[in-house]
Simulated scan of single mutants.
Amino acid sequence: MTKEMQSYSAEFEVESVKKIADNSGNLSVTTRQLRIMMQTLSNWQNKTSQGKLVGIENTILNLWQLLNESSNSNEVKDS
C-alpha cells in the first residue's frame, strides 16, 4: 500500500510557521496542534529562513507590480 502525499497551500505553510512563535518556538506542540509531521514543519521553517517560502501577500504584491508594469508599457505603445 502506498500512502498519498498530502499537499498544503502556501498560505497554510506560512501561517504554520508563524504559529511556531505563538507556541514559544516549540515545534512539537505546533505540529500536534496542526496535525502535521514535524519534519514537514521544520522544512517550511527552513524555507522561510532562506526566503524561499513566501505568503500570499507577496504573491499578490508581485501580481500588482506586473500588472502596473504591463499597463505602463501599453500606455507608452498607445502614445
Rank of each mutant, 00 (worst) to 15 (best):
E4N: 13
G51W: 02
E57C: 02
S71A: 09
S49W: 03
Q39H: 04
L41E: 03
L41M: 05
E69G: 03
V76N: 11
S71W: 01
T40D: 01
S9K: 12
Q45V: 12
S28W: 12
E4T: 14
M38P: 13
T2N: 13
T48H: 09
Q33S: 08
N74Y: 09
M5A: 15
N23D: 04
S28F: 10
V76L: 14
K3P: 08
W64V: 15
K18F: 08
M38N: 13
N43K: 10
N23S: 04
S16K: 02
E11M: 07
R35I: 02
Q33Y: 02
V17W: 00
T48M: 13
E69Y: 02
V76A: 12
V14M: 10
N62G: 12
K18M: 10
M5I: 15
V14L: 02
L67Y: 02
S70C: 12
S71P: 00
M1W: 10
F12V: 01
Y8W: 12
D22H: 06
L34N: 00
S7F: 06
S73W: 05
I56R: 10
L66G: 05
W44E: 06
E75K: 12
V29T: 14
I56L: 10
E4P: 11
G25F: 04
N58M: 09
M38G: 10
Q33A: 07
N72G: 13
T40I: 00
M38D: 11
K47C: 15
M5G: 05
K77L: 11
V14A: 08
E75L: 14
N74V: 14
E69K: 10
N72H: 13
N26T: 00
Q33M: 10
T59D: 10
I60P: 00
N58Q: 11
E15Q: 14
T48G: 04
Q65Y: 08
N46K: 12
I20M: 03
T30A: 07
W44D: 02
S9G: 06
R32H: 03
M1S: 15
V54I: 11
L27G: 00
L66T: 04
N43H: 04
K3E: 14
S7N: 08
I56C: 01
K3I: 10
W44G: 02
N43F: 01
E11P: 01
S79P: 07
S49H: 06
S71Q: 06
N68K: 07
Q6C: 08
S28T: 14
L67F: 03
L41W: 01
L41S: 06
E69P: 01
F12N: 01
Q45S: 14
S70D: 13
S79F: 11
E11N: 05
I36F: 03
K47P: 04
N62I: 11
K3Y: 09
M37H: 15
T30H: 04
S42M: 04
L67D: 09
E11H: 06
T59A: 11
T31S: 05
N46T: 13
S7T: 11
S24T: 15
S9F: 02
S70F: 09
N58I: 07
I36K: 05
R35N: 06
K77P: 00
L66V: 06
Q45L: 13
V54K: 15
R32T: 03
T30C: 09
F12R: 05
L66M: 12
K77T: 06
S73P: 01
W44Y: 07
R35F: 01
T59W: 05
